[in-house]
Each structure stands twice: as C-alpha cells, then as structure tokens.
Simulated scan of single mutants.
Amino acid sequence: MKKVTGIGGILFKSKDPNAMNDWYKTHLGLETSPYGTSFEWRESEDPSKKGITQWAPFAETTKYFEPSAKDFMINYRVDNLEALAEELKKENVTILDTIETYDYGKFLHILDLEGNKIQLWEPID
C-alpha cells in the first residue's frame, strides 16, 4: 500500500500572516489570499490529473499545531486515508482526531516519533 503520495502543504506560524502574504506576493510573486497560496502541478504518472501544494502562514498564537510545540506542520497527500488510518492504528501511531471530510478532501492529524503534528490529506481532485 502506497502511503504518502507527496507533500500537500507547508503550514507555518507567523507574527503577521497578512503581512507575510503581502511580502511573498510583492517580492516573490506568489498569488496569495488570506489562506496563503496553492501551487498547481500535474501528476507524473498521469499528467491529466492536477494536484496542489498549499503554502499557508498561520497566526503565531494558533492552537492548530498543538500538541506539537513546533512552528510548522507538514501536510502529506495520501491516496486512501481510511485504509491508512487503520494501518496506523495497528502500528500504534498516535492519532489525534477522527477523519474530517470537506469538499476539497479528507483530513486526519497524527504525531511523529518526536511529537511533530502531521496533517494527512486525501484530496478530492
């Protein structure tokens, strides 16, 4: 079973997310919104399929990355989140919540060996 298919996003804390968005827009040309920006790409195995990688600054006071004390969280793309969640449970991986489904995909949060919070995302492309 293929587990991770790519990086879905880089999420990080910032003193001023709006200013950070503006700086990256002005100096590096990112097309930002209040949610950061999405980098669109095509899958190498099937170029007809699009994918995105999200770049998003969060307020430095966000509780979203807890229980990790890190200033970042990596989002990994996966193919079958339900099957992966079952496998991770059997492997005694710390699972922080239940799978949540939105119109753009399914999400689950886990902790790695050093307590870094990881977001797993099965996109609905």
Rank of each mutant, 00 (worst) to 15 (best):
M1N: 08
N80D: 07
D112G: 06
E87P: 02
D71T: 12
K2V: 14
E43H: 04
I99Q: 01
Y64F: 12
G8S: 10
T32F: 00
T61S: 13
H27K: 15
Y104P: 07
A19R: 13
E60G: 01
T5C: 03
Y104L: 09
K90N: 14
N18L: 15
L96Y: 02
A83W: 05
N80V: 03
E43K: 11
K90P: 00
S48H: 04
K70C: 09
N92R: 12
L108M: 11
L96S: 07
A19D: 14
P34N: 03
W23D: 14
I95N: 00
G9F: 00
K13C: 14
R42G: 04
I74N: 06
A85F: 10
G9I: 08
F58K: 06
P57V: 06
N21Q: 10
E91I: 05
P67T: 05
E100A: 11
E100W: 01
E45C: 06
M73C: 15
L111E: 15
G8A: 07
T61W: 03
I10N: 05
K3M: 11
D97L: 01
S38G: 03
G36R: 07
Y102C: 01
F72T: 03
A85W: 02
M1L: 04
L84R: 14
E43Q: 09
E91S: 06
G105H: 08
L11K: 06
D71G: 15
